[in-house]
Simulated assay, not measured.
Amino acid sequence: MLKTKLHITPTWLFRNEENDLLDPVIFALLNGVHDTGKLTRAAQKAGISYRHAWNLLTRGELFFGMPMVTMRKGYGTRLSPLGEQLLWSEQRLRARLEPQLDSMASELNHQLQQLLEGAHPVLRLHASHGYAVALLAELPGELDLRYCNPLEALSALNRGDCDLASFHLPASPPLAARVMAAYHDQLAGQNLRVIRFVTRRQGLILRAETRQQVHGLADLTRPGLRFINRDEHSGTRVLFNLLLEAHHIDEAHLTNAAQEEFTHTAVAAYVAAGMADVGFGVEAAAAQFGLEFINLATEHYLLVCHESQLRQHNLCQLMEAMGSDSFLSAVDHLAGYTPDKCGTPCTFDELLKDGIDQS
């Protein structure tokens, strides 16, 4: 078994015409200034000395020709417009690329694992990107986690390209029936089983100043209110479109609805940067960026497999670990997430009768 796993992290490199580079730790420093308002504490959070922090800011001002922070006696240290733009750009970069890079790292770890003598079987999971599913990679055993949309995940499961696929169903029975119908071709006749995992809250993500004019879906049609959408093939987009339909709202009446991001985190980063006024996604993404959240729907995030795979040792190991106290505690610490009979297998019929109606 691999003792060290590979991780891939995106990093900005700023290079000027003289081929000088700006130390990427500047982003950790800017984030610390944003969170604390004090350069001393920001330097501590970034793991550098105060002197090094000061030198970085001085060099950055020379590099860009304008300051990245403003300092006023009695008011502390604040990000300048340049500093804010740099910070939000870096956070949007991470939000956009990290799921793909995590998938690439998982693939590389899987390939390395196969080179080891007596390598343990690797459990392959194709899943929608999310905060709780990322925790599964930290459990015992080898998990090859690839991020993709529900249609891709279920198709891979049916082809035998993965052992598990993620799927999410709204807790509302009418909405759940619509989602089941949307994925009927991928679910029918496959002798599938569901492994219960978590519930999560989905809703509107917005800044505090926007909260005064947005109270629900109907307000999204307000003139000039900029919306950031999820990609059209995501499960979250399917849910959002169903909610619009239930409220008789035409998506064409939403400003900038054609603009899309591919993860909940990217939507929240887009709103936090002021590039949109409101988006739709999970509560955990709003909490990550200190944004407001209006809950609109609760859904079950599930794992799906073929019935025969429930007897696989590595899958049994995963289901047992999902029910452990430490894992349930980790889920509970995610905003908007709740353990949902974690690791318990059932059929779709049993879930629709029990898990949906009682949510």
Rank of each mutant, 00 (worst) to 15 (best):
P81K: 15
L192E: 04
R59G: 01
S103H: 04
G130Q: 01
R15I: 11
L123Y: 00
M275D: 05
D325S: 15
P67G: 11
Q100C: 13
L187W: 07
H34S: 04
N314D: 08
Q44T: 14
A176S: 14
N55G: 09
L169A: 15
T338V: 02
I8Y: 11
L328C: 10
M71E: 12
N295A: 14
R146K: 03
T236Q: 04
L254D: 07
A258V: 07
P174Y: 09
D354V: 03
T40Q: 09
G74F: 00
A132T: 06
A177P: 03
I8N: 01
M180N: 05
A252T: 15
F262H: 04
L315I: 12
K45N: 12
L30E: 01
L97V: 13
K38N: 09
G355Q: 12
L79R: 05
E209H: 09
N158C: 12
R78M: 03
R51F: 15
K45I: 12
L243T: 03
E152S: 13
F348L: 13
P121N: 05
Q114P: 10
P345I: 03
V271S: 02
E152T: 11
N256A: 12
V198H: 04
N19G: 04
E142I: 03
G189E: 12
L101A: 02
P121G: 01
Y183I: 02
G74H: 09
Q288G: 02
P140F: 02
F197V: 07
A276E: 01
H306F: 11
P345V: 02
M322Y: 08
E138R: 14
E320Y: 13
I26M: 07
V33G: 06
S308M: 10
P223Y: 02
L310I: 08
L239A: 03
K45A: 06
L21K: 02
A156Y: 08
L143W: 00
E18W: 08
P121T: 05
P170F: 03
D340G: 05
A218C: 08
N31F: 06
D340C: 09
L192V: 13
R226D: 08
L123R: 05
Y75M: 06
L125D: 02
V214F: 04
G224V: 06
L145F: 02
Q100L: 13
A43S: 14
T236R: 00
H215L: 06
A286P: 12
L56H: 11
L97G: 01
A153Q: 02
R96N: 05
D20L: 14
E17A: 15
A46V: 08
T344F: 15
Y270F: 10
L57V: 07
A284C: 15
D35A: 13
E98N: 05
N314I: 11
